[in-house]
Write a protein that binds this DNA or RNA. Structure first.
Lengths: 102, 102
DNA sequence: TTTCTTGTTAGACCTTCATCAAACAAGCCG
DNA sequence: CGGCTTGTTTGATGAAGGTCTAACAAGAAA
């Protein structure tokens, strides 16, 4: 498993960020990451309702929207939010997601 | 043309608001409304790049997401942002849209 | 009334995208 | 080495939704 590149947040358009968050599965992923306060989770931790292939797809969308970063550890991919950077680029957006505990 | 109902903002999920704003045409509509500082525009004012049927569709999506309100005046439909209410429900969201003058 | 203007709706078309199974890649562990 | 774990990728499928034309609705204007 190779490491993935993730974008500079100043290159991420608002529409991309909004679109990334406008999906129930991705919203659920982000919320899970928010509840553990900036900690790391593996893809497997998100596979409650959909297949690992689907999760892998959504993780990619979130990564390309600048929301998350990943670190490879053995066969696992440790995923965490880019909290400070994302908040600096899109102030208040994550707070809206956190507020509604759906 | 009959008047449309628009939702109570407390009943609008975050995902609905994000999805409404995650489209280039709708983003452009909202930005036009933002530039005139809470004023009113007709559907025709948005028909630069797409047909009036398409605009009507997008206006409906925005209305059902609680972003806009409409007032009938003759054959025209005066559209304006629900600035205060939307800001109260989703603090900072419209500011993100306004910030990026795309 | 007839015509024009403005917007909505129905229907069709097509792109995007969410989803899955299956195959693959790559690191761990016996 | 061979099997196990974890993710990724590919290809197919189906649903959602953006777009248009054409038909319609309703007020304005002549």
């Amino acid at each position: 498993m190779k490491d993935h590149a993730y974008p500079d947040l100043k290159d991420v358009p608002v529409a991309t960020a909004l679109q990334a968050l406008a999906d129930p599965v991705r919203l659920s992923i982000v919320r899970k990451l928010l509840t553990i306060n900036g900690g790391e989770l593996t893809c497997g931790d998100f596979c409650d309702e959909v297949s690992k292939a689907t999760i892998s797809h959504h993780i990619r969308v979130l990564r390309e929207a600048g929301l998350i970063q990943q670190r490879t550890e053995g066969t696992k991919s440790m995923t965490s939010l880019r909290l400070k950077e994302f908040e600096a680029r899109f102030p208040g957006l994550l707070k809206l997601v956190r507020a509604e505990e759906g």
